[in-house]
Design a binder for these strands. Structure first.
Lengths: 120, 120
DNA sequence: CTTTCATATGAGCATCTGTTCATATGTCCA
DNA sequence: TGGACATATGAACAGATGCTCATATGAAAG
């Protein structure tokens, strides 16, 4: 990238100009990185992590989740919307009740990998 | 949990008291969930995601990373500290220069899983 | 020892984020 | 149709977060 930070960088003969060149030409497109960070952001909140975890066990309605987490219905609903936008959960309506469940197995897999990292 | 939100919950004869009970007794300890969310938070920022990505390719020093990302040395250094605290990267010092690299393969695995999810 | 360079860090600030509160939407039942 | 209930949503506010700027630390060279 261009020289906005020249004054802060190591000398122009940066010892690793070759490495820099190589990496620069193998970076994935910007929006792929944005999407990745956006997805991880969903996992990066305790409330949302708890919600995903309780859905490991079974499909649940909003008020069930609120009761389990000891949180307001509103707070839970707001977070469910964020998780759903990331396509990590799906829902179905049965009368007045809306049931949420995990969208697929990726959630468990991703969390499982993270757990492995923590266990070391 | 206890009845701080009684007024907001569905009726006391919540239709899924059994499911609530079951889930409540199979929740992992609070701090495990906190740690998980904390770890994902590290992945949940574009700058940090970029840093991890450039380290996929090779070990790099701080000023290299700053140049690749077009960011200030300070900003990069602050983020490196956060990533290091999560034990996702390690560093070694060679004279004045500090080289950063991925700590292990979990980073790649976790990001790979997330990418799979996005590709659907 | 002093200078120079690479990196680290603390304070301050602007932005983002998660919760609450009030209220809207949607469904069932009388 | 009106009331009760489950859920969704917008506004507002408090706390968290990422950057910048200034400066500190640590290491090599003279």
């Amino acid at each position: 990238m261009i020289d906005q930070y020249d004054n802060e960088r190591c000398d122009s003969n940066c010892p690793h100009a070759d490495a820099v060149e190589r990496v620069l030409h193998h970076m994935p497109p910007e929006d792929e990185l944005l999407d990745l960070a956006e997805l991880f952001k969903v996992f990066g909140d305790t409330t949302r992590m708890k919600i995903l975890y309780v859905l490991f066990a079974s499909e649940l309605c909003v008020c069930d989740i609120a009761e389990i987490l000891g949180m307001s219905q509103s707070a839970v609903s707001h977070q469910l919307r964020i998780i759903k936008q990331a396509k990590l959960i799906k829902n179905r309506r049965d009368g007045k009740t809306v049931y949420y469940s995990l969208a697929d197995d990726h959630v468990k897999t991703i969390i499982g990998m993270a757990k492995e990292h923590l266990e070391e």
